[in-house]
Amino acid sequence: MRAALSAAVAACAVTVVPPAAASAGTTAGAGVAGARGAGVERISVATDGTQADDDSGGASITHDGRRIVFSSSAKNLTADATTGGVRVFLRDQRTRQTQRMGNLAPLQPPVISGDGAYLGYAHQWMDNVRIRQYQVSTGRTASLDCSAYTCDQPSLSADGRYTAHVIRSIRQPSFGQRIEVQDWNNGSRNETVAVLDHTQPSRPSISGDGRHVAYQDGRTKDVLVWDQADGTTSDPIEGPSKEATLVQLSDDGSKVVYLSGSDTYVHDMSSGTAQLVPNVRGVAIDPTGRYLLYAPHDTNGPSLTLRDLQTGTDETVSNQPASAGTDAVSAEGRDVVFQSTADDIVPGDTNGKSDVFVRGFY
Rank of each mutant, 00 (worst) to 15 (best):
R2I: 09
A7H: 06
A7M: 05
A7G: 02
A13N: 15
V16W: 04
A24D: 13
G25C: 07
T26F: 00
A28I: 12
A30R: 02
A30K: 10
A30V: 06
A35R: 13
A35C: 04
R36C: 09
G37D: 00
R42C: 15
Q51K: 14
A52E: 03
A52G: 08
A52N: 02
D53I: 04
D54P: 08
S56Q: 09
I61T: 02
V69A: 11
S72Y: 14
S73F: 07
T78S: 07
A79F: 07
V88S: 00
F89K: 07
L90W: 00
R91D: 09
Q93E: 05
T95M: 11
T98Y: 09
Q99T: 15
Q99E: 15
R100P: 03
M101C: 15
N103D: 07
L104G: 01
L104F: 11
Q108N: 13
S113W: 06
D115V: 08
Y118A: 11
Y121L: 09
M126N: 14
Y134A: 09
Q135K: 13
C151W: 04
D152G: 11
P154V: 03
G160L: 08
T163E: 01
T163W: 08
H165Q: 15
I167W: 07
S174A: 14
F175T: 05
D183Q: 11
N186M: 12
N186Y: 07
T192S: 12
T192V: 11
V193I: 02
V195Q: 13
V195S: 15
L196S: 09
S202D: 10
P204A: 08
I206H: 00
I206A: 02
V213E: 10
Q216S: 01
G218K: 08
K221L: 12
L224I: 02
Q228K: 14
A229S: 10
G231W: 10
P236E: 05
G239H: 09
G239W: 00
S241A: 12
A244L: 03
V247K: 02
Q248Y: 03
S250D: 03
V256H: 01
V257E: 01
Y258G: 03
D263L: 06
D263C: 06
Q275Y: 00
N279I: 02
I285G: 01
I285W: 06
P287Y: 04
T288Y: 08
Y294H: 04
D298R: 07
G301K: 05
L304K: 08
V317C: 01
V317S: 00
V317T: 04
S318N: 06
Q320C: 05
P321D: 12
A324P: 04
A328K: 03
A331M: 05
E332P: 06
V337H: 13
S340A: 10
V346L: 09
T350H: 14
R359E: 04
